[in-house]
Nucleic acid binder design. Sequence first.
DNA 1: CCAAAAGTGTTGAATTTACACCCATGA
DNA 2: TCATGGGTGTAAATTCAACACTTTTGG
Lengths: 234, 234
Amino acid sequence: MATTVETSEVTLAVSTVIFALGGEGLRIPLVRRIRQPFEGQWALPGGPILRTEPLEAAAGRNLLETTGLRSTYLEQLYCFGDVDRAPGERVVSVVYWALVRPDEAELAAEGENVRWFTADELPALAFDHNAIVDYALWRLRTKMEYSRIAQAFLGPTFTLAELRQVHEAVLRRPIDPANFRRQIEASKGIIATEQRITGGRHRPPRLYRYDSSVALTDNGPLSTTRNEAPRVIS
Amino acid sequence: MATTVETSEVTLAVSTVIFALGGEGLRIPLVRRIRQPFEGQWALPGGPILRTEPLEAAAGRNLLETTGLRSTYLEQLYCFGDVDRAPGERVVSVVYWALVRPDEAELAAEGENVRWFTADELPALAFDHNAIVDYALWRLRTKMEYSRIAQAFLGPTFTLAELRQVHEAVLRRPIDPANFRRQIEASKGIIATEQRITGGRHRPPRLYRYDSSVALTDNGPLSTTRNEAPRVIS
DNA sequence: CCAAAAGTGTTGAATTTACACCCATGA
DNA sequence: TCATGGGTGTAAATTCAACACTTTTGG
């Protein structure tokens, strides 16, 4: 992946699959390669690993550098190391996946060499990146069913309808609003505020916020106690 | 981890957490380090990555080299890359976890520099290997609840009591035999043979074998179509 | 016959699912 | 007042959990 020096036998890199929710469902940003191999083709944002930088920080950094965004959720996906995944050299890529909020994604830098694609309709990507995205999509959809990562797509407060729409968009199936409400309320991790949204031609929905004392997902002993910053309650 | 050349900025290695079931529950083999750092302390089997060797093959190879065993299940656990996890140099380790059968584990080479330990009572290990084992244990126990990896601890045929005892040993809690039976029978992936075990002072139990057309666990698009070899039905 | 584990049946609780229906708002 | 989603109620279906009971063997 065009990294570091050529003196090492194996090259190590970090790449990141970034998800945001757009009009047509899940969207991910890709960068156009400006050198061989795969020059001109689209690829996942990525780069070399710096000697003194943690892997997760590297993922966050190249996320920031290519899109200008900070993610609300970042997790290691897998380490890809097939011998022939890059022509000529042996590249091992530690891949992370990230979720960003749509309002931030709006501001995202989009230029000649960075473009957002609909996740289910990608062109042929460089390297094995199509397979990587497929796996990231599978993980996201699987995890959506048993964790509360959906909240990472939303701002500090949200209505239950918004949260449900996130689930529906990611899982691509309708969800019963009544059952969804009870399910979420029973699962904890969410706190009702006294605020409501007015202006709609219907009963004003209550706003919720997430309970920052409860982790979005249970990663067992790996949980990096990196809980999101406590939210200011308005 | 004392690998390859020092010309590269970051050293890449593979380690493996190997699980077998022994009398006192889960057991794992460790190797004694014969050089600095952590000389004399116990550590996970591991080694450098060869230029032309797939990561999974490297894990299988150092499993074979240190214990003489081949595993019935091998999966990537996580890639550990904290900056200070090895004194002096930057080492990124791709860690795999493996399951082996007790009958094979019996034959395992155990010498001055290789010893089997009870997984829940490990001494202080080299590097961050205690944390790695904790995470592997969590993954094994979590996965035991929703997949059929328990079968990887058993031979080609087994009774439902044996299968249940694997669950009980790993999860460390008793399981109702009646409910366990129905649960397993409903979940498919297991086939009843016409054979029974005689000789016990009780009704002879039926032998089962696993359905090799059903994967032990659903890893989504990552499944390496590396299904176990079809079993000969006796 | 007795002990022990294999295997089947049954019942109540908990959870899931579908859908009816009332509530509060803006137009 | 009507349309629209917010929010509550409820009952059937399914799954889960506990445990009684019957079966088949060896001693």
